[in-house]
Amino acid sequence: MSIDRRRFLQQLSSATAGLAGVSLLGANALAAQPPKKLFFKISLAQWSLHKSLFKKEIDTLDFPRLAREVYQIDAVEYVNQFIKDKATDQQFLRQLLSRSQDHGVVNNMIMIDEESDLGDPDKKKRLKAVEVHRHWADAARFLGCSMIRVNAFGAGSRQEAKEAVVDGLGLLGEYCHQIGLQLVTENHGGLSSDAEWMADVLRQIDKPYVGSLPDFTNWCLRREGPGFWGGKCLEEYDPYRGMATLMPFAAGVSAKAFEFDARGNCLDIDYTKMLKIVKDAGYTGYIGIEYEGESLPEKEGILKTKALLQRVGASLS
Rank of each mutant, 00 (worst) to 15 (best):
Ser2Asn: 15
Asp4Lys: 14
Gln11Leu: 14
Leu12Lys: 06
Leu12Ser: 06
Thr16Ser: 09
Ala17Lys: 06
Gly18Met: 06
Gly21Gln: 03
Val22Met: 14
Leu24Asp: 08
Leu24Cys: 10
Ala29Pro: 00
Gln33Ser: 07
Lys36Trp: 02
Lys36Ser: 15
Leu49Tyr: 11
Leu49Val: 05
Lys51Ser: 13
Ser52Glu: 14
Phe54Asp: 11
Lys55Val: 03
Glu57Met: 04
Glu57Pro: 01
Thr60Asn: 07
Asp62Val: 11
Phe63Asn: 09
Leu66Lys: 12
Ala67Met: 06
Ala67His: 02
Glu69Gly: 02
Val70Met: 10
Tyr71Thr: 11
Lys84Trp: 10
Ala87Pro: 00
Asp89His: 01
Arg94Thr: 15
Arg94Glu: 15
Leu97Thr: 11
Arg99Asp: 10
Gln101Met: 06
Gln101Asn: 09
Asp102Trp: 01
Asp102Ser: 14
His103Gly: 03
Val106Gln: 10
Asn107Cys: 09
Asn108Cys: 12
Glu115Met: 12
Gly119Ser: 07
Gly119His: 01
Asp122Asn: 15
Arg126Lys: 09
Arg126Ile: 10
Ala129Trp: 07
Val132Arg: 10
Ala137Cys: 12
Asp138Glu: 10
Ala140Gln: 03
Arg141Lys: 14
Gly144Gln: 08
Cys145His: 02
Ile148Thr: 04
Ile148Phe: 02
Val150Lys: 00
Val150Arg: 00
Gly154Val: 08
Arg158Trp: 11
Arg158Cys: 08
Arg158Gly: 04
Arg158Ala: 10
Lys162Trp: 08
Glu163Ser: 13
Gly170Lys: 08
Glu174Gly: 07
Tyr175Ser: 05
Leu181Ala: 09
Val184Ile: 15
His188Glu: 05
Ser192Gln: 04
Ser193Val: 13
Glu196Thr: 14
Trp197Asp: 07
Asp200Leu: 13
Lys207His: 09
Pro208His: 01
Tyr209Pro: 00
Pro214Arg: 00
Phe216Cys: 05
Phe216Asp: 06
Cys220Ile: 15
Gly225Thr: 10
Phe228Pro: 00
Phe228Glu: 08
Gly231Val: 14
Glu235Met: 09
Glu235His: 07
Glu235Gln: 13
Tyr240Pro: 05
Met247Ile: 07
Ala250Arg: 02
Val253Ala: 11
Ser254Lys: 00
Glu259Arg: 01
Phe260Gln: 03
Phe260Gly: 01
Ala262Lys: 12
Asn265Asp: 14
Leu267Pro: 01
Lys273Cys: 02
Met274Leu: 08
Lys276Gln: 15
Ile277Thr: 06
Asp280Ser: 11
Gly288Ser: 15
Glu290Gly: 06
Glu290Asp: 04
Leu296Gln: 05
Lys299Ser: 14
Gly301Lys: 02
Gly301Phe: 05
Ala314Gly: 10
Ala314Met: 06
Ser315Glu: 12
Ser315Cys: 05
Leu316Tyr: 02
Leu316Trp: 03
